[in-house]
């Protein structure tokens, strides 16, 4: 059973990293978007290994079912996307070195200083706990995020309507 766990974990890990590499390096943007589907899926699988069942389902539902569909819609509706040349060469290597080193150092510190629980956690359903926390301890951030989304929604509608009026 333990061996099976390891095999499945590595499958998901390879799926996540491998498809992420395709997302970054594939010259055709539609394939990048398609590979992103597998990245999201792999990450959801990793959430399952962390006993975060609600998060895993929400990840697929929101990122795969919603956001990625919109990204692909965006690709479809962009004029001349097939002939669009997406630059893959590197520019200004030495300047880029500064943020790279900074980010790498930051990530390294986090990895080094975090205590990683190594024993596999017993699987607990998390939905109820998350629901309770969202409506008690984290009520204000939750409501703020809602307001932000509502503002974005209204803004998008306003923009779309504005241009439609001008065309008439």
């Amino acid at each position: 059973m333990e061996l099976l766990r390891h095999i499945i974990f590595w499958l998901f890990a390879v799926l996540t990293v491998g498809s992420a590499v395709v997302v970054v390096f594939h010259p055709r943007v539609i394939y990048s978007a398609f590979a992103l589907l597998f990245t999201f899926f792999g990450v959801a699988g990793l959430y399952v290994f962390l006993s975060a069942d609600f998060l895993a389902a929400a990840q697929i539902l929101i990122y795969v079912g919603g956001i990625l569909t919109l990204i692909i819609f965006g690709v479809f509706l962009t004029a001349k996307i097939t002939t669009l040349d997406i630059p893959h060469q590197t520019h200004q290597r030495y300047v880029a070195l500064v943020p790279i080193v900074m980010i790498a150092a930051g990530l390294f510190t986090v990895v080094k200083n975090t205590v990683w629980p190594t024993a596999p956690l017993p699987h607990h359903p998390t939905t109820q706990v998350i629901g309770e926390l969202l409506l008690t301890k984290y009520l204000v951030p939750f409501e703020l995020a809602s307001i932000l989304l509502l503002a974005a929604l209204i803004g998008a509608m306003r923009l779309a309507r504005y241009y439609r009026k001008r065309e008439d």
Binding site: F54, A58, G66, T69
Partner: peptide, 11 residues
């Protein structure tokens, strides 16, 4: 999270 799983894979 059965119902969520259902909707997620449906999508």
């Amino acid at each position: 999270v059965g119902m969520l799983y259902l909707l997620a894979f449906g999508s």
